[in-house]
Design a binder for these strands. Structure first.
Length: 250
DNA sequence: GACAAAATAT
DNA sequence: CATATTTTGT
């Protein structure tokens, strides 16, 4: 009995993370790529919310564009969002750009999606051949159910895949939220591999925490509420407007 | 050093 | 945009 997996991220995921994006300068200045041992035994700072830095409120606070941003880690939640986006768009129209737009995850680049999409397609292909036989490798992909149409190029792509109650995606999330703040208690039910062997649910989050080069500088609490991110009509005439929930309806 | 994941190049 | 190759992290 699988409970209806809500597409809406749990509150944990929507934690009003303070840090929005890594400030380029800080990232470079600190340059803690490796050799960064956080041996904060006791307190540590699970939530850098205080000590608001002045940031760059003046100018140039542009999200590290054109700068080397840290390696993106695809968490199950993020992947879920990815799958969700693809499902809504339709496997045919599921191109990196469109997917990226629908995901509305700030900081997520088209390249990120493209790369992931490539791997995902390989996974789907592998699954069709292997017959659901997934290896330990695909644990990430296995964490999210694969919509039927994905394995079913029935010819119709984005026609009949209706969305029950159409749960819109949350507002723009920073990839930082996925990278860091993610609650380690991600209890995603392992529905696929029920071979009695429960995979580690620690996920990369755990190991991520100890080596993520990402700057964890307490940023100010400026929440980027630029939630004006909806998908434009990507379909033929059909205007698929996503209503973001947090945006107070006009 | 092998492997997987993500990035980058074609 | 898709695919191939390379880099990077575990």
């Amino acid at each position: 009995m699988r409970d209806e997996e809500e597409e809406l991220p749990s509150p944990e995921e929507l934690i009003p993370l303070s840090q929005s994006l890594i400030t380029p300068h800080l990232a470079i200045a600190f340059d803690l790529r490796s050799t960064y041992h956080r041996k904060n035994g006791s307190s540590g700072h699970p939530l850098p919310q205080t000590t608001p830095i002045q940031a760059n409120s003046s100018a140039g606070d542009e999200p590290a564009r054109t700068l080397k941003r840290p390696r993106l880690v695809w968490t199950p939640q993020l992947h879920k969002r990815f799958v969700d986006a693809v499902a809504h768009i339709g496997i045919k129209n599921a191109v990196p750009k469109t997917i990226m737009q629908l995901m509305s995850v700030e900081g997520l680049t088209r390249e990120n999606v493209a790369s992931h999409l490539q791997k995902y397609r390989l996974y789907l292909k592998r699954m069709q051949s292997g017959g659901g036989n997934v290896g330990e490798s695909d644990r990430l992909f296995a964490s999210s159910p694969v919509p039927a149409h994905f394995l079913h190029p029935t010819g119709r792509q984005s026609s009949d895949h209706f969305i029950p109650s159409f749960v819109p995606m949350a507002a723009t999330l920073t990839h930082q939220q996925f990278l860091h703040r993610q609650t380690p208690a991600v209890n995603f039910t392992s529905q696929a591999n029920n071979n009695g062997k429960v995979m580690e649910q620690s996920l990369f989050l755990a190991r991520q925490s100890q080596h993520q080069p990402v700057l964890i500088r307490p940023s100010s609490l400026h929440l980027q509420s630029r939630v004006a991110n909806y998908a434009e009509d990507l379909e033929s005439g059909a205007k698929t407007v996503l209503t973001l929930f947090p945006t107070r309806q006009d």
